[in-house]
């Protein structure tokens, strides 16, 4: 086996999907597109096109990088099941990467906390706050209603992520002139970032056993307390 790792990255966390091919942590080709709800139809052709663009055949892939959420329920599972099928079929390792980690990674070395925001449908947001002194895996990831989040914004933080463009004016209104908001409309996640995170994880032996791979599913605090009250039999 060559000592190079050639990775295929898949991120179907949200309506924007990303596929990339990289060698030793450096991107060769990537494709990102707005898939909306069509991931199950569009993902595999996108993988084929990206492999062709990278002049890499599927047999050359030595590792798979997969984004595990939080994100849209069905879309996320399309990418994850595809990644797991390929890893199983080719008997290659799989590396899981949190979707909010991909969002914050480019901004972690700026000496400040970073908060990433992704839409979770209607008025809900997936939020990840990453402390500047902490490692990437120690971020606090949670689900919050948009108004509640805006009322109680993390202080002294950089804001980034797929949803910042649409929340920009509200964030500026609340943060005042000292705001630090990444100015990037979606798609905000790049396969080159996954390549870098994934390559570092592979080198440190941080692969995940196929049986242990699960999407990150977040409950709202409201649902968490509803779950504790189950079962609630119907009464008139």
């Amino acid at each position: 086996m060559s000592d190079q790792d050639i990775a295929l990255a898949i991120d179907t966390s949200t309506r924007y999907a990303v596929v990339g091919v990289s060698r030793d942590g450096q991107s060769i080709a990537e494709l990102s597109w707005r898939s909306d709800r069509n991931h199950s139809v569009e993902l595999v052709p996108a993988i084929q096109r990206t492999l062709a663009q990278a002049h890499v055949s599927i047999e050359d892939i030595t590792v798979i990088h997969i984004a595990i959420g939080p994100g849209a329920f069905s879309a996320l599972r399309v990418g994850m099941s595809t990644a797991m099928a390929m890893a199983t079929g080719r008997d290659i390792p799989i590396i899981t990467i949190g979707t909010l980690e991909i969002e914050v990674h480019p901004y972690l070395d700026l000496g400040q906390d970073v908060t990433a925001i992704i839409g979770a449908g209607r008025t809900r947001l997936y939020i990840g706050t990453f402390k500047r002194e902490d490692s990437l895996s120690n971020g606090h990831v949670y689900l919050e209603d948009r108004d509640k989040f805006l009322e109680n914004l993390p202080v002294d933080s950089i804001f980034c992520g797929e949803a910042v463009a649409e929340l920009r004016s509200e964030l500026i209104g609340r943060l005042g002139p000292d705001y630090k908001i990444v100015s990037a409309p979606p798609p905000t996640r790049s396969a080159s970032v996954m390549a870098e995170i994934g390559h570092a994880k592979l080198k440190s032996g941080d692969t995940t056993d196929l049986a242990d791979i699960e999407p990150i599913y977040l409950r709202s605090s409201q649902v968490a307390s509803a779950a504790r009250r189950w079962p609630n039999t119907k009464t008139e």
């Binding site: 849209a72 069905s74 979770a120 449908g121 209607r122 809900r124 649902v223 009250r229 609630n232 119907k234």
Partner: peptide
């Protein structure tokens, strides 16, 4: 995965929803 529907942009009609208050 009902979240995709319940927090989506269409219309959801749910029977026996009182099984899962909250």
């Amino acid at each position: 995965g009902l979240d995709d529907y319940l927090y989506g942009n269409d219309l959801c009609v749910v029977e026996w929803a009182d099984k899962a208050p909250g």
